[in-house]
Structure formats: structure tokens, C-alpha cells
């Protein structure tokens, strides 16, 4: 069971499956980052700080 080289510790997912789950997290982080950047730009337009 634990000798299957495809399975990743500790969840028992295969490498591909684990990478897919991880990709959702990565995508989410990227979207979050982009949105945060845009929101900061918009705030800076209406109420500039450090200026």
C-alpha cells in the first residue's frame, strides 16, 4: 500500500491528483493577489495615501 510510488504521503492521492488539488490553491492565490492589487490602485485613485 505504502510502496506505490505514485501515491503521495500522507493522503494516498496520486501525484497527479495532488498536483491538481494544489493547482486550485495556487490559482486562488494568484486571483487573490491580482484582485488585491487592483483594489489598492482604485483606493489610491480616490483617496491617495503617502502623497
Amino acid at each position: 500500500m505504502s510502496n506505490d510510488p505514485e501515491k503521495v504521503w500522507p493522503t494516498g492521492l496520486t501525484l497527479k491528483e495532488a498536483e491538481e488539488v494544489h493547482s486550485y490553491l495556487i490559482d486562488g492565490t494568484r486571483v487573490f493577489g491580482a484582485i488585491a492589487l487592483l483594489a489598492h490602485v482604485l483606493v489610491a485613485v480616490s483617496t491617495p495615501w503617502l502623497g
Binding site: S2, W9, T11, V21
Partner: peptide
């Protein structure tokens, strides 16, 4: 390992 493997999937969606 088998113990951990039974725990793992509980935290997967």
C-alpha cells in the same frame, strides 16, 4: 502510515 492514510482523506474535499 496506514493510520495517517485513514486520517488524511478526512481533510480533503
Amino acid at each position: 502510515l496506514s493510520k495517517i492514510q485513514t486520517i488524511g482523506p478526512r481533510f480533503l474535499p
